[in-house]
Design a protein around this nucleic acid. Structure first.
Lengths: 346, 346
DNA sequence: GCTTAGGATGTAACCGTTTTCAGAAAGTGC
DNA sequence: GCACTTTCTGAAAACGGTTACATCCTAAGC
């Protein structure tokens, strides 16, 4: 009808500006840098925002400012307690500092991971959280070309030029193996996760082997089994191991879920843990201390690890200097599933 | 130096356009609607995109087109197998149809949920996936004001005007209770999840109570315990229940994790399941069939539920007509943890 | 051969912010 | 009272795409 009515048709920040009788610049400032605007204006603008029900349009903001206050994360799968916990912790930290998290999954496929990274970069994320240091060769170039900061989490590799935060999986697995060796075991098997595209699993196997080698112990090929992630797979592997004529007296597992499978299968096959077989896990999930027998395992501070990853990126983005390689301590938790080996049969 | 060099400084789509010797409109068309551009041009553009290493800028695209091909989801927590599975399934489906998922968590706090919704709307999501129908009163208004389609997942309420997809929790819990009643139990307790801000938990308790009422069975207050989500909490509740002078012969649990707690605690207290106590769970997580005794429980197709939620929104956004209320069938899985009650003692 | 419909391409306005730059207002010091 | 800072505010140009509209071509219809 008249001039003022035209104003009512405005959208977004302009509607707020019109309502408060100020320019869009002032509204923007009131929002992003409140100190730069006088208290009276700030109040008037706050009121207008409330009245209009204004919600800032993030895409426009990102486009204009070239910063999204959003981090991207790519994990193999969300359906795994370790990652779920880690992501939850990261998300919690990020929201506490006003950042958001854009989460995607790769399904342990490096090509998919690369694609997701492209996706997230296109989305305008300020930084990327990746799992491990086993990536598609194009990923590093992509990150460099687009100047996207990133960090590898869950591993500790101080010798590499890329930032990382995590426990030293090799050392931790070494400790797990030493534990059963100290108990007197000489015939020790390992059920690991699939090592392909999984440097974490690989490092654990390496640490285990090193411990054996240092103690002059043999690892017959049939005592090393690799399994996918499910309980069923772990049980099947355990069945194989337990049915061997010449079976080990102790089994070190690549993670707790695998250990659960070994425990369940041992019980089902009539073996008593730890009397007939010692079992060591890795991760220390909730179930480990509830199980009967409770599980001896390596405790890994997942929450801290992922939060530190967030901290690293946020600080880097703020221009602060921070440590590139941060090691997160693990610890061996001895419970009921390990004991000295049975007396030599013959 | 010269005119052409200026072109080299261009960014994004304009760089691609310059390189291919076409307009930005053509590049955009080649990307979004390939059929609208001639094959030869399409090829030339594809090559230019490759050469420049062009990654479309999603925020700009969203700003301009007013559509993001992104859905938002708000779940209480990601650190819960049910939600993790659901999200994984939803994400998988969405990526198969070219959508992305923006995930946030509310920590079972309705205010936070509302805030996250505002957040996601500001982010430009095309639709929202919510858990249950227990929301902040302002949320409905927010969604309506911004014309954001949404769906409540994990519940089935055909009488309400909002779209939803999920199992009928009331009926499922009723079935669980009936199962133990049919076995001959008359003294039945329940350990439920916290009902506050959790309509799912509430519906399950209601179904349980209805089954009892229909069979003229009493529920002494001390036989109904509510617990938070962890195994430890569940064990404590079970301890309480098992130490009662006058204890139930069967316990229906609000979810499988609670049931695990009851199982563990029963064993620890010297009770034999199902001889001394029958236990029914709800969800049918992985562990349920591996446990000893294996757990009788209600099987809920989580994957299907969440995928359907995605389907509903994607179809709605495509303008297709779809059913607003979709019921997902549950089923009772009878395993080892339930049996007729012990013979009457005296 | 001329008209015309329709497809392929280009031009440029616009999406909702931020931010540079400049101008106005309000203090300061003398 | 005047020149000079220092604050505060506004005008307008990006940011990187999409898309309505205009234009140019080609081929069909007569």
């Amino acid at each position: 009808m008249n001039a003022p009515s035209a104003k009512l048709t405005k959208q977004g920040i302009r509607a707020v500006a019109a309502r408060a009788g100020v320019s869009t610049a002032s509204v923007s400032r009131a929002l992003n840098n409140p100190d730069a605007v006088s208290p009276s204006l700030r109040a008037r603008i706050a009121q207008a925002i409330e009245a209009v029900g204004y919600i800032p349009h993030a895409p426009a903001r990102i486009l204009s400012s070239r910063r999204s206050r959003t981090l991207g994360a790519i994990v193999p799968t969300i359906d795994n307690t370790m990652f779920a916990r880690g992501i939850a912790s990261l998300q919690k930290y990020l929201s506490s500092v006003g950042y958001m998290l854009f989460l995607t999954t790769s399904g342990y496929d490096l090509d998919v991971e690369l694609q997701q990274a492209r996706n997230l970069i296109g989305r305008g994320v300020d930084g990327l959280v990746l799992r491990g240091d086993c990536h598609h060769e194009g990923l590093r170039k992509l990150l460099a070309d687009n100047a996207v900061p990133f960090i590898n989490v869950g591993i500790y590799q101080p010798d590499r030029p890329y930032p990382c935060v995590g426990t030293n999986n090799e050392a931790a697995a070494h400790r797990a193996a030493e534990h059963v060796i100290e108990l007197g075991h000489r015939r020790i098997g390992i059920v690991s996760a699939l090592q392909r595209n999984n440097d974490r699993a690989g490092a654990r196997v390496a640490g285990f082997r090193r411990a054996l080698a240092e103690n002059c112990l043999e690892l017959p090929p049939e005592w090393h089994v690799e399994v996918p992630y499910t309980l069923d797979d772990a049980r099947e592997a355990a069945r194989h191991l337990l049915n061997l004529k010449n079976r080990p007296t102790a089994v070190v597992c690549g993670n707790d879920v695998i250990a659960y499978g070994v425990l369940l299968e041992a019980e089902r096959s009539g073996f008593s843990v730890p009397r007939d077989l010692s079992v060591v896990g890795f991760d220390d999930l909730d179930w480990s201390r509830h199980l009967r027998p409770s599980l001896t395992t390596i405790q890994v501070p997942t929450d801290e690890t992922w939060q530190r990853a967030g901290e690293y990126l946020v600080r880097s983005l703020a221009g602060e200097q921070t440590i590139m390689h941060r090691e997160i301590d693990f610890s061996l938790v001895v419970r009921e599933s390990t004991a000295p080996p049975p007396a030599i049969p013959k």
